[in-house]
């Protein structure tokens, strides 16, 4: 398997506060990597550095083989067309309708005729389970779960190979969060996506992640499959998995290794 993202020797500091110290991480082609860590452990900072939004103080971040700090503007632009990002709060453009939000990246290509853009955008909305009646709405008229779905549709608009998810299920009720996880699972199999996901939610982690990276003490204390991680002795991992909540989530996962498929009425294959 080839490497999609590689982070080497990453150091980050805000003033006197050290966020990352010599952090190394690789993301492999086709996997779902879940990044967990306590509040303030630098998960979001790490994500922003992988996206090239923040510059690391020291260290190299390579995505698709391009060093984000030294790659030419042309290369970066080309590469950015191949990843999609789902921000924690959706980050939909508040002045555009739902439809225009999804159509924007397609229009920016300046290659597709408008009828095709319309069909493609409606396809993407369909895939994430947003009906056509919501297309002319403004983002402020949508519920939290719908905002995330539309944001996912926008992230998928350019057929990305790599998808970043920042807290995909935070702020959703259990039911929408479960169906959102199921949606990502389906998409990932259909579109052979590589997914990097930050999450607090154990259920999401258990049902999506192939590998888990645990961020604590300013570095990655463990990277591996979930059942390997669970057995590592570390205070944060202990409190995460061996607390009451963690036990419950793990028990539920072992009880029924494949959770029942939830099928969206809108996109029965």
């Amino acid at each position: 398997m080839s490497v999609v993202i590689s982070v080497a020797g990453l150091c980050t500091r805000y003033g006197k506060q050290v966020i990352h110290r010599d952090l190394d991480l690789t993301v492999l082609d086709g996997e779902v990597l879940g990044i967990v860590g306590g509040s303030g452990s630098g998960k979001t900072t790490l994500l922003r550095q992988m996206l090239g939004l923040d510059q690391p103080m020291r260290g190299v971040v390579k995505v698709f083989g391009y060093d984000l700090q030294t790659a030419s503007a042309d290369d970066l632009r080309r590469m950015r067309r191949h990843w999609g990002v789902l921000f924690q709060h959706g980050a939909l453009f508040s002045a555009l309708t739902v439809f225009d939000n999804v159509a924007l990246p397609l229009r920016e290509l300046r290659a597709l005729p408008e009828p095709m853009i319309a069909d493609l955008a409606m396809l993407k909305l369909n895939v994430v389970g947003i009906g056509a009646e919501h297309a002319p709405k403004m983002p402020s008229q949508l519920s939290g779960g719908m905002i995330k779905r539309v944001a996912l549709a926008r992230a998928l608009a350019l057929q990305p190979e790599l998808l970043f998810l920042d807290e995909p299920t935070a702020g959703l009720d259990p039911e929408s969060s479960e169906s959102f996880v199921e949606l990502i699972n389906t998409l990932r199999n259909e579109l052979r996506l590589t997914v990097v996901m930050i999450t607090h939610d154990l259920d999401t982690l258990i049902s999506l992640a192939d590998r888990v990276a645990v961020l604590a003490d300013q570095r990655l204390v463990a990277v591996g499959a979930l059942d390997e991680i669970v057995n590592i002795r570390h205070p944060f991992i202990n409190s995460l998995f061996h607390g009451e909540r963690g036990q419950r989530a793990l028990a539920a996962a072992n009880d029924d290794t494949r959770p029942p498929k939830i099928v969206f009425p809108d996109h029965v294959p």
């Binding site: 309708t97 439809f99 319309a118 409606m122 396809l123 369909n126 895939v127 056509a132 996109h267």
Partner: peptide, 12 residues
């Protein structure tokens, strides 16, 4: 099949 079912975007 999915394409055949796609609806036109309603005019905003």
């Amino acid at each position: 099949t999915r394409l055949a079912e796609v609806q036109k975007p309603p005019q905003a």
